[in-house]
């Protein structure tokens, strides 16, 4: 009656339970830490937008769904956001090699384009409202306003970070600090662009 005795590994009584424990990663640097933090923040945001999309997909099978004619402004928005993201990428690369002037220019372009994106979104919303397609008119509209609205809110939050980045630049900080904060902004922007493209794709392909 000793079938449970672990005969295969007589020396298994070790202090370290495993040799595959993985290596200690070493002390983290501040900039790396912030980037990790941002990436982890993207987890709940991805979850949120993902769930929104799955709710959209479930809801659109109900009988009362009437596809929303997308206002042409959202195409403009898409273009603006792509360019804004590109602006941040420009700034990010410039920051890596320490071209502070280019960083400044990139940031300015990216921020203005992001504001233009918001304006374009606002235009689209007004257009819909005036066409009698208000938020409660049909679930397709409700989802359109909810998705684009939440996305815009996150962009507004991003613009706060953008302002802070400009402040860092104005404060003539050391290159590492500039590099870090610009990098964070750029990553966040790329994420928001990805979210927008996903939302946009859903709205266009699954109307």
């Amino acid at each position: 009656m000793s079938f449970w005795v672990d005969r295969g590994h007589p020396g298994r009584g070790t202090i370290e339970p495993s040799r595959t424990a993985g290596r200690w990663p070493g002390p983290a640097e501040r900039s790396k830490l912030a980037l990790r933090g941002l990436l982890i923040l993207l987890v709940p945001l991805t979850s949120m937008f993902g769930l929104l999309i799955s709710a959209y997909i479930m809801r659109r099978h109900m009988g009362d769904w009437q596809p929303l004619p997308l206002p042409w402004q959202v195409w403009l928005s898409t273009l603006l956001l792509v360019l804004s993201s590109a602006g941040f990428e420009w700034a990010r690369r410039a920051a890596q090699v320490g071209w502070v002037d280019d960083v400044r220019r990139g940031l300015l372009v990216a921020g203005v384009l992001a504001l233009a994106f918001l304006a374009s979104q606002f235009w689209a919303w007004r257009e819909l409202q005036q066409a009698g397609l208000a938020v409660a008119t049909n679930p397709a509209n409700s989802f359109f306003f909810l998705m684009t609205g939440l996305h815009a809110l996150h962009l507004v939050a991003g613009l706060m970070a953008w302002l802070r980045t400009r402040a860092v630049l104005a404060g003539r900080q050391e290159p590492a600090a500039i590099q870090s904060t610009v990098q964070l902004c750029a990553w966040y922007w790329h994420f928001l662009l990805a979210v927008w493209l996903a939302l946009f794709g859903v709205l266009v392909l699954m109307a």
């Binding site: 079938f3 449970w4 005795v5 672990d6 295969g8 590994h9 298994r12 009584g13 202090i15 339970p17």
Partner: peptide, 12 residues
Amino acid sequence: RFQPDNRRLEWW
């Protein structure tokens, strides 16, 4: 008794 694990028992 110091006994970190017992794979066999656990699989059972």
